[in-house]
Design a protein around this nucleic acid. Structure first.
Lengths: 361, 361
DNA sequence: ACTCTTATCACAATCGATTGCAAAAGCATC
DNA sequence: GATGCTTTTGCAATCGATTGTGATAAGAGT
C-alpha cells in the first residue's frame, strides 16, 4: 500500500480485505458473498458457491466488519450495562450473569462504570445510546430515576437489575428484599434476640427502602419494638461503620440486621472500635452474600441473593424484549427471586447480660 | 425542503433525526452541519451558522450516530478489555483504572469476560476485533499467548496488564513480581522464619513464573534451602487449599508465601482442615492486596500492587500508541511498578506462644 | 480595476456491509 | 418450443456520518 516499506518484504495483508475482495476471489457478486457468509441467509445460495466463498474468505483471512453491518441493519448486538461502582463486589457476579446470557445469543456487554452522581450517570447513558446499543441494563437505578424516564420517553429497551424503581416503568429483576429482611430478623429472633437494630441503606435506593420496610414489618409481626434504625449514607464500609456506631451508642441492641454486606462489615469495624466482639456481644446479619464474606472474622451470616441469576434473568428479559414484535414487549414484568438465609459465625444467641449500652471512658 | 412542522410541541420524534434533518432545519448542507457540530472542525464554519445549527440540533433532539461516524472515520473510540474472570476481585480495580483513563479521552471499554481457555479467549478476541475496537488491553495473557501473536501479526494495537509475556512482543504494565516476593520472603525472614514454603501460581502465567523465581532468588540470597514449593493449578481458593495442604503435609514449614491472595485464602482453609492456626502455627503472606483481605481472619499480610494504577497506565500506554504517528509506536515499553509490603495479622514470629486475646485498644 | 487571499459552504465520494427486487438459469410439463 | 415454476444470482439503494475538492463571495492590497 504505502511506499514507506523499506524493502519489498510484503508480509501480512497490507490491504483491508472486505466483502468485495472475497466476492472477487470467488467470482461472485458482493451480495452473494454476503448471503453465503451469513448463516441466516446461506440457504439462498447454491451449496457449491457457498463452499467456494467460504474457502476464499478463509484464504484471504476475511473478517466481517460488524460496524458496517450494524449501520445497515440498525442493530449492534451490543447491550449497555451501567453499574454504579464496579469495585463493589456485588456487581461482579451480576455482570458475569449478564455476560453469559448475552453471549449465548451473540450479544456483548458494553459495561460502563457510571458512579453515583445522577448527572454523570445520565451522561454515560447518553454515550451508550449514542453508540447505538440495542438496549440497556441498569444496575444503577434510584427509586425515581432520570435515566429510566429517558428510556421510556425515547422508547429505548431497558431492564433494571438488583435495584428497581418505585413505579414499575420498566421490567426489573430483583431479589425479594422484603422477604430477605424477614429471614434475617426471624433468624435472629429464633436465636433469642429481642432487641434488634437495623443499619439501613440509602433511602433513595429501592434496596434501602424495601429492606427497611421488610425489617419493620418482620419486627412488628413478632411483636418487637422497631425503633433502632440508623440509615447509612452509602453502601460502603465507612458509612456502615458510622451508622453502626451510632446505632450501638443509642440503643441496647443485641443484634443488627444490615441492609448490605458492606454495611455489615462496617459494623464489624464499629464494634471493634467500641471493644465489642461479634457474635459474643452483638450478632450481625448481612445481605447479598458477597464473595469473600465467608472468610471474614467472624464468617458473616447473610442473605444470599444469587446475583448471577439476577444478571442472567435481566439479560434474558431484555433479549426477549428485543425479539418481541412491536406491541408485545414485556414492559411490565417484575421478576422477584427468593433469597435464602446463610448461617455462619456472626450470629449466636445473646448472652445473659445484654450488651451494655455505654462504656466508661 | 421539507415542510417544517409549525406546531412547536410535536411530541415523540416519530422520524429518526439525523444530520440531514438538522441541516435542513438550519438551512445548510449536511457537511456544514457536520463540521459545525464537531469541535475539531467547528472553526471552518461561520460563527453565526454554528449557532443556528446548534440551536436546530438541540431543538430536534439530535444525537450523533457514532456508528456511522466510526464507519467513515475508521475509529470507534472503543477499547476491548479482556479479563479471564471478572469475579476475581483483583480485576475490578484494574478495570476501574482502565475505564477512568479511557474516559478522559472519550474512549469506552468493551469488557469481555474471556475465561481461562485459550481457544475461547481467541474467539472472544476475534469478536472484539470484529467490532472494530481501536485497540486491546489484555489481562489474560499467558507466558506465550496466541492472542498476542495475532495482534502482532495483524498489527492490532494492544497492551498487556498485570500479566506479561516471556518475550516482550507488546507493551506491558505489571507489578514487579520478582521484587514482591523478595519483600514477602524478607519480611518472613526478619520475623525469624527459616523454613519457608511457596504456593506457586500456574506455570504458564507470568505472575506464577516470576513470583516463583523471586521467591527462589530471595531464599537463596538469604542462604535458605528452597525446596518447599507446590504449584497450584489455578488462581482459585480451591486450588490454593489443595496446594497448601500438600505443602504442609510434605514440609515442616513455619511460613508460606503464596503467589496470590486467593491462594493464600486457600491456605487458610487448608490449615483449618489440618487443625493449624495462623499465625501461631504457620505465617502466611499473600500477594495483590485484593479488596476485603484486610477483613478476613486473620487479616492477611500481603503485597500491595495498586491495580488501579496498573489499569490506568495500561490504558494510557495504549492511547499513546493510538495517538502516535506510524513508526513511533511504543511497542517495546515494559512498565514495572514497585509493590509494597502490607503487614497485617497473618504473619508473626515462628513458634510464638498462644498470644492472649488482646484486641486493639 | 484587477488580482490574490481568505473565509465559507455545497457537492459528491466514501466507509463496508445488507436486502428488496428483478433478471437469469435450470427444469419439468404439456 | 412455449409456459410456468423454483432456485440462484446480480443490481443498486441504503444505513448516517466525514472529508477532499472546488465554487463563490467578500475583503485586502497595489
Amino acid at each position: 500500500m504505502t511506499s514507506t516499506e523499506p524493502m519489498g518484504m510484503e508480509l501480512g495483508p497490507r490491504v483491508r480485505v472486505d466483502l468485495q475482495a472475497v466476492a472477487d476471489a470467488a467470482s461472485v457478486h458482493r451480495s452473494t458473498a454476503s448471503r453465503a457468509l451469513n448463516p441466516a441467509t446461506r440457504h439462498l445460495v447454491a451449496a457449491e458457491a457457498v463452499a467456494r466463498i467460504e474457502e476464499a474468505a478463509r484464504a484471504l483471512g476475511y473478517r466481517r466488519d460488524d460496524l458496517a453491518a450494524s449501520l445497515r441493519t440498525g442493530r449492534t448486538n451490543l447491550i449497555g450495562v451501567m453499574v454504579p461502582d464496579i469495585i463493589n463486589p456485588i456487581f461482579a457476579p451480576i455482570l458475569q450473569g449478564v455476560e453469559t446470557a448475552l453471549a449465548r445469543q451473540g450479544y456483548s456487554a458494553l459495561v460502563a462504570n457510571a458512579g453515583n452522581d445522577p448527572a454523570r450517570q445520565l451522561g454515560v447513558a447518553e454515550q451508550l445510546i449514542g453508540r447505538r446499543v440495542d438496549g440497556l441494563i441498569l444496575a444503577t437505578s434510584a427509586e425515581d430515576d432520570p435515566i429510566v424516564a429517558m428510556c421510556v420517553q425515547q422508547d429505548i429497551p431497558a431492564v433494571l437489575v438488583n435495584r428497581a424503581e418505585r413505579a414499575a416503568r420498566l421490567p426489573s429483576v430483583v431479589s425479594d428484599d422484603f422477604e430477605g429482611m424477614r429471614l434475617a430478623v426471624e433468624h435472629l429472633f429464633s436465636l433469642g434476640h429481642r432487641r434488634i437494630g437495623h443499619v439501613a441503606g440509602p433511602a433513595h435506593l429501592s434496596t434501602g427502602v424495601r429492606r427497611r420496610a421488610g425489617f419493620e414489618a418482620a419486627m412488628r409481626t413478632l411483636g418487637l419494638e422497631v425503633d433502632a434504625i440508623v440509615t447509612a449514607g452509602a453502601y460502603q464500609r465507612g458509612a456502615g461503620a458510622m451508622a453502626a456506631a451510632e446505632l450501638l451508642d443509642s440503643f441496647a441492641v443485641t443484634a443488627i440486621a444490615a441492609s448490605n454486606d458492606l454495611l455489615a462489615l462496617g459494623a464489624y469495624r464499629a464494634m471493634a472500635g467500641l471493644g465489642l466482639s461479634c457474635p459474643q456481644d452483638v450478632s450481625i446479619v448481612g445481605h447479598n452474600d458477597m464473595p469473600l464474606v465467608d472468610m471474614v472474622a467472624p464468617p458473616l451470616t447473610t442473605i444470599r441473593i444469587d446475583p448471577l441469576a439476577l444478571g442472567e434473568k435481566a439479560a434474558a428479559l431484555l433479549l426477549d424484549w428485543l425479539g418481541s414484535p412491536p406491541g408485545m414487549e414485556p414492559r411490565a414484568v417484575q421478576l422477584v427471586t427468593k433469597p435464602t438465609l446463610v448461617v455462619r459465625g456472626s450470629t449466636a444467641p445473646p448472652f445473659s447480660p445484654p450488651a451494655p449500652r455505654s462504656w466508661p471512658g
